[in-house]
Nucleic acid binder design. Structure first.
Lengths: 234, 234
DNA sequence: ACACTTGTGATTGTTAACAATTATATGAAA
DNA sequence: TTTCATATAATTGTTAACAATCACAAGTGT
């Protein structure tokens, strides 16, 4: 289980409710695009597919709605979120502001242990870069941002980013990843880490802004290639 | 129905689900402090109290949880959120960042009609100030901030603030209001409005930061008076 | 007196049937 | 052919009963 997967509950698997288990699987299916964007999704079908009743299925869909992965209309049903350039821009603008704030706070509040974990993660990332371990590159990137958010110490900031925007963001990043080596991105991570280690929150925040802006530009380019196809299907 | 009450759905009352109706009443009761902070709240009791079954009551509690008005523990139950100085600081720090961003965007994207509505609202507020209409002062204050958020044009920003932080914020503002005339606050609103009208997003954002910071200081002072009592009760 | 086990009650989690609402298809009239 | 009304089917909303889990208290043994 990745660091970014575990949010705040540390409960063992046996305590997990059916809605939670189904939720995780649906999240992954949606984020990976295995369920087509814009397609309808209803409670009965989910319940049948996972061998449960409509109650937990309904709860899972409600959670997916608040995670912005589906769009629900009362008495009508739900549809998988559709990726658009406009929404990507809005999402990244908000993300940039919030993660910049997280950097400023993290530079003040980060503990020695958290700083050490961040350093270790960057080393792993550089290792994965050399070995062309693409999955770990992407997961490591997410974990880097997550650890900084966590180190900010602001629980509301963390909840807003991790429980709210995080999931839709993962969808954009997964489906809009260019596939080229993230050499520059990891170098930027290194710079941000150094700024935080030097307790220079202002610099760290600035670097994070630019880092996310570059990611936005790449994602937009990729999305503009695939958007005509995805928006074509009803 | 106030401007800040209607979020994005414009459905008539008949379409409202039972969970929604109960939700609104519970929100108000919690925000006003009619239900004691920290007290337990369970599904059965809610269902009985409102004459509905546990299904909708359960959904309402889930929504209250994501609005941060209650804290749920799996298989254990839920408790009304307790106001603390620390959490108030975190909440206002996040709010300051987000509403400052909203100002910057609003200065760019606000329409002539929205600008006119903002001007009208400020006039009403000044009128309410002279007439000592306290309820309208508080509601007008919330509407001012809401309209700017709306004018920012960023849907994710709006959802994060209105659907997420907004409710807990209302609780703090309601229970930590000092009762003295908000003369300065309304003057600051006027300044922010002017900056937005002049398309000076940078200034508007800065003024909003200071405006919220002053509100934070007042709320902290008030909360420090009542916190010993609220944290005393289990 | 203390630790451990066990049982009881309360609360949440789950299920399946029922009700209400909406979308879609069918057909009649202009 | 088009448009409106109606009926039908599909889906969500709601309910009450059942199962599982947890907190707490009583009791037992050392």
């Amino acid at each position: 289980m990745s660091l970014s997967q575990q949010t705040h509950q540390q409960q063992t698997e046996s305590h997990l409710t059916l809605a939670d288990k189904v939720l995780v699987q649906l999240q992954n299916s949606i984020i990976k695009g295995e369920i087509a964007a814009g397609s309808k999704i209803n409670e009965q079908a989910i319940a049948k597919q996972f061998g449960i009743s409509r109650g937990p299925a309904r709860e899972a869909l409600h959670t997916l709605e608040r995670q912005l992965l589906i769009i629900r209309a009362p008495h009508v049903g739900a549809r998988i979120a559709r990726l658009t350039v406009n929404e990507l821009n809005e999402l990244y603008a908000l993300r940039s502001t919030l993660e910049s704030m997280a950097c400023e706070l993290a530079a003040i509040h980060i503990s020695a242990q958290q700083l050490q974990q961040l350093a270790t993660l960057i080393q792993y990332q550089q290792h994965a870069l050399q070995n062309d371990d693409f999955d770990f590159q992407q997961q490591g990137d997410i974990d880097f941002h997550y650890q900084i958010i966590h180190a900010s110490g602001n629980q509301h900031l963390r909840r807003t980013l991790i429980d709210g925007l995080y999931h839709l963001l993962r969808m954009y990043r997964y489906q809009c990843s260019s596939g080229i080596k993230p050499t520059q991105a990891i170098a930027e991570h290194q710079q941000i880490y150094t700024a935080i280690a030097n307790a220079d929150g202002e610099l760290a925040g600035l670097l994070m802004r630019r880092h996310i802006e570059r990611g936005r530009q790449k994602a937009v380019l990729r999305l503009q290639q695939i958007e005509p196809f995805t928006s074509a299907q009803l």
